[in-house]
Amino acid sequence: MTDTDVTLQPKKKGLTRRQKRRLSRGVQYVVFVAAVIAFAVTADWGRLQNQFAQADIAKQMFPDVITLALKNTVLYTLSGFVVGLVLGMVIALMRLSSVGPYRWLAGVYIEIFRGLPALLIFIFVGVAVPLAFPGTEIPGGTYGKVAIALGLVSAAYMAETIRAGIQAVPKGQMEAARSLGFSPAKAMVSIIIPQAFRIILPPLTNELVLLFKDSSLVLFLGVTLEERELSKFGRDLASTTANSTPILVAGLCYLLVTIPLSFVVRRMESKAQEAIR
């Protein structure tokens, strides 16, 4: 037999491609069902319910979990987002500057704050700064501290996003604006940045989701009862009741916000895709 004969003949032994695919899928289903059954059988359902789903404890959390904890989480997130956006914009423009030291400084900032854990920055802002500069008071108390800590972290990410957005605006836009007599600054503000924001709206919203979760780090600043946000609120109640239901409820409150936001981001992304076509 020649080589060509071998390749052209259907293989006699072993499985065909279709059979292999069917077998592989079958095995995956079996593993899945087995895992579910194993969990259902071994789990102590009574204990789980007792620990996580006690209706009366959950009831006891309302309305404070919404009117206080969720409200504070949203407040921390938005203030951090605003600080991050403004600072991020400044850093992005520095990164694109024709002045070398500005570019360099912006690069250093981005590398440092993207490389550090957010928790470390919270501790830094909340504890280290007041100790290092006695007498200085960050305005706004805890709210101010959180806004600055979250802002410092998110500015580094947002700066990179904004820079990418500005660079994604076609070069012809700046040329058209300049040829109409716009100064570089005016062209940036009226023509380039509005278009850049359209491009980066989805990643910026993603950043908002991340901040929403990072706001839980307030936990480590030591806050008053009135300043508690979801995580702290849930944990406090969990320890007073010696039950995990509050943690579960707090978690659900996060998802109440993050899942719709993620959905909005996906919608925006697919819309942007359509616009390109």
Binding site: P170, A176, R178, S179, L180, G181, Q195
Partner: peptide, 17 residues
């Protein structure tokens, strides 16, 4: 910028905003 106000320019790719 002042000089460019006196010079209109039309591009191959239109470059409308």
């Amino acid at each position: 910028d002042a000089v460019r106000r006196r010079i209109g320019m039309v591009f191959q790719q239109f470059n409308l905003f």
